[in-house]
Design a protein around this nucleic acid. Sequence first.
DNA 1: ATCCGGAGTA
DNA 2: TACTCCGGAT
Length: 213
Amino acid sequence: MQRSYQVIYETLFNHYGPQNWWPADTPFEMMIGSILVQNTNWRNAEKALTKLSPFLEPEMIDRLPIEELAELIRSSGFFNIKAKRIKAFIDWFKTYHYDIEEIKKMNRQGLRRELLSIKGVGKETADVMLLYAFDKPIFVADAYVRRIFHRLGYDIPTSYDGLRERVEERLPNDLVLYNEFHALLVEHAKQFCRTKPICDGCPLFDSCDQRLD
DNA sequence: ATCCGGAGTA
DNA sequence: TACTCCGGAT
């Protein structure tokens, strides 16, 4: 039986409580983190972020030789590619003089298009940046989210934007809501709805078709 | 030894 | 659609 997205949100919120993801530390750290976490879990990305922490200023990363950058972020995996991607992102950021407030003045669509033009920033990474660094309400429709909704029994669009728009059509356009909802879904995917799901004690058990693929 | 991980590009 | 990249967990 398919419940509304709103009910799923409320159930997760009641179980896990507010996640308070944003200003994790700084918007800049969030942007770098969104690249480091590609094809990895947050644990590995966080290790890289810790090693990188003495250099977590746009100017410092800009000056850092790409080989040194790659070595610092080794623990996140795919470090050569990610070093290149971080550099490409910094190059774009520099054209706005590293001024986040200035970038925030852009509308959601326009900023999304710009982010997508950066080599190494795809839809998911762009949306994480939009939501958690640039305060734009957007639903991040990543692999965790897709897995959870699929198992719940939702008939979901196959494309990334299809799923994103489907959810956005059914929820109020609210920054805090999208911020919390995605954080809750990630937490749920880590605690219960893993690759190999742990259905015992799952807060969504009653709303779930329990398809174990 | 194998598989997974909040993908991205051509 | 296929190809890519690499550390950590099991």
